[in-house]
């Protein structure tokens, strides 16, 4: 699944693009960053309701290049700047984590483990 398909499925808006074009196949939904850091896949989407600088840092450290922020969470300038620097896509969606996860699953995105 590409970025545009993800945006379409979760009725999202892209706040930062990534040059890391890939076929996303898995996703992990969590607000707990330590949980995110435990699992890894090269083509994973992070779905979260946690919009802090550490969300972006966790993605960067973990090699995640697409974050979907649920329930229209606001993104600070500091977060955007780090996302740009780290080449991480940020999509914001009005839908809940449950709904985003469901829609992506329905369209072929699979859990990590």
């Amino acid at each position: 699944m590409n970025l545009n398909q993800i945006i379409g499925l979760c009725d999202g808006e892209i706040l930062n693009e990534t040059s890391d074009i890939k076929d996303f196949r898995t996703a992990f939904s969590s607000d707990l960053m330590s949980d995110v850091l435990r699992w890894h896949s090269d083509n994973m989407i992070l779905i979260t309701g946690l919009a802090t600088i550490q969300t972006i840092r966790t993605a960067e450290v973990s090699g995640i290049s697409c974050i979907v922020l649920a329930r229209g969470k606001k993104v600070s300038d500091e977060m955007l700047e780090l996302a740009k620097e780290s080449d991480i896509a940020i999509i914001t969606s009005p839908a809940s984590m449950f709904e985003i996860s469901g829609k992506l699953y329905e369209n072929g995105i699979r859990p990590l483990y």
Partner: peptide
Amino acid sequence: REMGFGAGMGLPNIKK
């Protein structure tokens, strides 16, 4: 905890 940490998984994660 508000930053997404503090669930007691840090040290086990490091060890792993």
